[in-house]
Computed example of a mutant assay.
Amino acid sequence: MPARYRAMIGDDGRFHAPAFDVAGYAEAIDRCRSRYPQLRIMFEAELGEPHWHPTQVRSLLDGYPFDRIIGSLHSLVEGSAFLVVDRAFGIHDADHVVRLPERGAAHGRVDGCL
């Protein structure tokens, strides 16, 4: 593993990625748009598991004019249990799984930013 990545592994053994430099990303998009006006360059982001980080997600979305946001869910709340989505499809009908986020929001268990 390259040294720059080894340095991001904490005492807990987990990888701690550096914070996303959204201001730098926005500046790079603006530079590219100025340099290549004939291209449609969109300002986009993917938010993995946004329901676990509602405050940071809201701050990001309120602070920058994204053209598109893609969200991804890998785990959901059902009652008092957490379900990994691929396992949820093994025990529930697809219709039930895809409606879990809205069921959670109706019961105050999932932030409304989804």
Rank of each mutant, 00 (worst) to 15 (best):
H107F: 10
V77R: 12
G90E: 12
A23D: 13
L47D: 04
L61E: 05
A88S: 02
P50H: 04
D21P: 00
R68S: 11
L114I: 14
E49I: 14
D111P: 07
R14F: 10
R6L: 13
G108C: 03
S34D: 11
Q56P: 06
D30Y: 01
L73G: 14
V22T: 05
H16V: 07
P65E: 05
L83S: 02
H53V: 12
H107G: 07
F89A: 02
G71N: 13
I29N: 04
L73E: 14
D30P: 03
G112W: 08
G63A: 08
D111V: 08
E102V: 15
P37R: 00
G63L: 06
I69G: 09
G112Q: 12
R68E: 12
P2C: 04
C113D: 14
L60Y: 11
V110R: 10
D21K: 00
A7Q: 10
P2I: 04
L114W: 11
G90I: 04
G71F: 12
L47C: 03
D111M: 06
G63Y: 02
R14P: 04
I69Y: 09
G90M: 07
S75C: 15
A94N: 04
L39P: 00
H107M: 13
E78P: 05
R68M: 12
H74N: 14
L60H: 06
A28F: 14
A106P: 13
C32M: 14
A105P: 01
G10N: 04
P54A: 03
W52Y: 07
H53Q: 13
S72G: 08
A88K: 00
G104P: 09
Q38C: 00
L39C: 05
D67Y: 00
D111T: 07
L73V: 14
V97D: 04
E44D: 09
P54E: 01
R33E: 01
R103E: 15
P2W: 03
A7M: 09
I91N: 04
H96F: 14
L39I: 01
V110K: 07
I41M: 00
Q38R: 00
D12E: 07
C32K: 12
I91V: 11
R103C: 13
C113H: 13
M1T: 14
E46Q: 04
R14N: 10
V97Q: 04
D62T: 12
D62K: 10
Y25W: 07
A23T: 08
L47Q: 01
R109F: 06
L60E: 08
F89R: 06
